[in-house]
Design a protein around this nucleic acid. Structure first.
Lengths: 337, 337
DNA sequence: TTGTACGCGTTATCAG
DNA sequence: CTGATAACGCGTACAA
């Protein structure tokens, strides 16, 4: 078995180079040191293959140069939400540039919640990005209490006022697409609303409702648990059953829209001729359905890097405006509406 | 700004409870301590909201109770490979049960490689799971040199003999599905081969070739870079151009198969009547295409948990058989072939 | 049952 | 420019 061999310490390499630990530390971290001493030390370092012990450094410096990326309820997320990956990549790129290590932590169970809490508070990370927290998620209070520099992606209503967040204008985007659906002559416009325990889900419904005004009809809203394909199929079937004359649908995500398309095909309805449909996310789904989806573009990478910046700025002692930051969401008109 | 307040230490809570640091440590880690002392200490702990400093514990114990999950080239992975998420979830679940924190590290650039190397060797993790390494990936040597307990998902040919891996029998699975394609009367069977710089890509091609034997025709192999939809479209177009009489296709992934379906639709070929097609992965793609895909099921969650077990066993000092571990891959016959 | 003292590997301070 | 020495916060022999 590859038993981790005893690793060389600053002490060892000091001995090997015939100098003191202080001098070694100085060549490692920059400082005045004579050319010959530096040479001897560098030789010793490559000789024994020294690698610094970051845990010790963290203890001493009170800085780990690491930032946590906490993914809540990743089961549905990883399997159906294409955004989470892009957000991670965006955050990682930004942190990487600032020489910080992004470590992502997955929270699936109560056991995970507690362990991740310990991890976050144990000095392993200097800050945390939290993605897709639900309302009343215990992690919210945990982060507040810890006073750990944090940034949320999305903003659960009970989020601590002092914690910044980044997101998109779900209400406005939903309203805009719904209005467009109406402007193109759709008379009976419904919505497949999902994830009403998250701010994104609630806000999209709010926007839809705002666009409809007096014409809003609660019967034309199908409430499904997740942003996934299966929910889309079920939601659309329900809507067709409740009102066969429905001719427009705002789906809370592209995956849902794709499922809705399937249900409409089953029912023999043609899209966009008989029914117009718009999605949300501009994910890979959008261009693979037949017809391709009109949808709201989410700048996922930018969201990730923006959240990372929010952390980095806090770490450099900058005062952060407590309000959130909303990124623009261009609307992409394709063929489905 | 939420400035991290000075955190209470064992020292502080010892003072508050009027005992010594040793006693505090004993109630934290289990040991003989009088009921009254315990009560006083526990009161003090909740009073000041003490949380242990894990970095210090790591330094002392030489154990971080954390395991790295290294995702190489996640860009294409996260966006097109549905398995990576499931593997992560499987690994996390297994590690969670053993009270270990999974921390996933993303490697996208040379800069990332170096930083992740430092992270892995810095004592932040007790072991590492490495997923989808390419041949000659620098991370391989890095892990070998570090002698860090590790487990690979898949096995690049130049993997250190001492490092265990877990995977599936790509050669056998590919061979089986190809044989079935032939057995159902397909005469001109081609393959869209992808990722030939990874073991998975190479092995699937090998299995395909083995099934064909003398009938193998290099012209009927389209070589595409990634396991994604776009590659599938291009690969299929190429195949149709090279031999319009092609009537069977083994696609190296479901995403590729879905792309191939699109290209066949373009060309006016009906599936499975004129052309039979099989995919690989049994991902969400498989049941969303029209017709649904016949494919090879990858037990992604099991792969993740198996890799985690491999690490945990090494951490408990167990001798690991250096060979890899291959998980079964049931073949799912649906409608596309 | 409890307290004391030491060391884990670093970096920082301060004389020399 | 360099070398000793003191923390950082914790676990644990060892002695009491």
């Amino acid at each position: 078995m590859p038993q981790p061999r005893k690793r060389a310490t600053v002490h060892d390499i000091a001995a090997a180079a015939g100098v003191s630990r202080g001098t070694v530390s100085r060549v490692l971290n920059g400082g005045y040191v004579s050319t010959e001493a530096r040479a001897a030390i560098e030789a010793a370092i490559t000789e024994v293959g020294y690698v610094p012990n970051t845990a010790a450094r963290t203890l001493k410096m009170r800085r780990s140069q690491a930032v946590g990326f906490v993914a809540l309820e990743p089961h549905s997320l990883f399997l159906d939400d294409p955004n989470i990956g892009a957000i991670m990549l965006g955050a990682n790129a930004a942190l990487s540039l600032a020489d910080h290590q992004m470590v992502s932590l997955v929270v699936e169970s109560a056991r995970d919640t507690e362990r991740v809490g310990r991890y976050l508070s144990g000095g392993f990370v200097d800050g945390a990005i939290v993605v897709s927290a639900r309302t009343h998620d215990p992690i919210i209070k945990m982060i507040s209490d810890l006073r750990l520099p944090a940034a949320f992606v999305g903003h659960p209503p009970d989020l601590d006022q002092n914690i910044p967040y980044v997101g998109i204008d779900n209400v406005g985007s939903a309203r805009t697409v719904t209005e467009r659906l109406l402007a193109t002559g759709r008379r009976r416009v419904g919505m497949i609303a999902a994830a009403l325990d998250r701010d994104s889900g609630i806000d999209r419904l709010t926007g839809f409702r705002a666009a409809l005004g007096d014409r809003f009809d609660a019967d034309l809203v199908a409430d499904v648990p997740h942003y996934d394909y299966g929910s889309g199929v079920k939601g659309m079937r329900l809507l067709l059953e409740r009102d066969p004359t429905i001719d427009g649908v705002f789906a809370a995500s592209d995956a849902i829209a794709a499922g809705a398309l399937e249900a409409l095909r089953e029912a023999g309805r043609s899209v966009p001729r008989e029914v117009g449909i718009v999605g949300f996310d501009d994910s890979t789904w959008a261009v693979r359905t037949q017809p391709q989806l009109s949808t709201v573009h989410q700048p996922a990478k930018e969201i990730g890097s923006c959240a990372a910046q929010l952390i980095l700025r806090q770490l450099s002692g900058e005062q952060i405006t407590p309000e959130g930051q909303l990124l623009p969401t261009p609307i992409i008109w394709r063929d489905s509406a």
